[in-house]
């Protein structure tokens, strides 16, 4: 039983993953809702965690695993307005998930029921990793870099040093390189604007498929900033933090992507 103040937030989260994965289970316990799923080619993994404080009201008195088809849940979420409140409920036996949308002024109520699936999902253990470089930058900037370089090549090498982070690609038509300096570059509406904030233990340079990175940038509407976690010989983690309507951190959406290697 979970009440979310703005249905649009859940829609944004589902829209950011529905093209990457077909089906997934929502694992619910008293602390929140967790999802983990790999794409069909087993190159990337998406996880999200929606903490209890993302919801106006939240209760879950026993652990549940709800099998969801992503296209179907996206269709239902599209039926609500983004500033509707949304109440999610399961019944007993647990074979449906019900969605009750209520308009902000309370003049419209709509209810939809999603048939749940029996999914036998493999669960992967994601090891705690000490990343060599953690790069924080504006989502819009990361999205632009990926889209720009994808017009030239199909993979992008991210190289992080103490002073800057560079993104480069090579294709048939030529090459492209974008470099962001470490540090604050100015102020906009009293908020610091970073080129990139870099925490570094050791310089790293890794290559990744731009097709997947572009999928990940669909999460850009969830947060101002994206955090890239890189380490030698480990998958890239691209993290978007999720905030509730009180601007408190209330979960995350994380994508993991295996690197490309030269033979």
């Amino acid at each position: 039983n979970a009440l979310i103040k703005q249905a649009g937030l859940l829609k944004k989260i589902i829209d950011a993953i529905k093209d990457l994965i077909d089906e997934a289970t929502l694992d619910c316990d008293n602390d929140g809702i967790y999802l983990q799923a790999m794409d069909s080619s087993h190159v990337s993994l998406v996880t999200f965690y929606l903490k209890k404080n993302l919801f106006e009201k939240y209760s879950c008195n026993r652990n549940l695993s709800l099998g969801i088809n992503m296209t179907s849940i996206a269709k239902i979420l599209k039926c609500g307005m983004s500033d509707d409140t949304l109440l999610l409920e399961t019944n007993n036996p647990i074979d449906i998930l019900s969605f009750k949308f209520e308009s902000r002024r309370g003049h419209k109520l709509s209810q939809f029921q999603l048939r749940l699936m029996n999914l036998e999902m493999e669960r992967l253990s994601i090891p705690d990793t000490e990343y060599s470089c953690i790069i924080e930058m504006m989502c819009s900037e990361f999205s632009k870099v990926c889209h720009d370089l994808a017009t030239i090549g199909d993979s992008m090498t991210i190289t992080c040093t103490k002073k800057n982070v560079t993104f480069d690609t090579t294709g048939d038509l030529g090459t492209g390189i974008v470099s962001l300096k470490q540090g604050v570059v100015g102020s906009e509406n009293d908020e610091n604007v970073y080129a990139a904030s870099i925490k570094i233990v050791k310089p790293v340079s890794l290559s990744f498929s731009l097709r997947y990175l572009i999928y990940f940038t669909k999460a850009s509407s969830l947060s101002n900033k994206v955090i890239l976690h890189m380490g030698e010989e480990v998958p890239l983690m691209v993290e978007y933090k999720i905030f509730n309507t009180y601007e408190e951190e209330a979960g995350y959406l994380r994508y993991f992507l295996a690197p490309k290697v030269n033979e």
């Binding site: 080619s41 994601i126 199909d154 295996a258 490309k260």
Partner: peptide, 14 residues
């Protein structure tokens, strides 16, 4: 360019 590594080689099935 480059060979795509699969994620399974990093994360183990529990």
């Amino acid at each position: 360019t480059g060979t795509q590594v699969r994620l399974d080689s990093f994360f183990k099935v529990t």
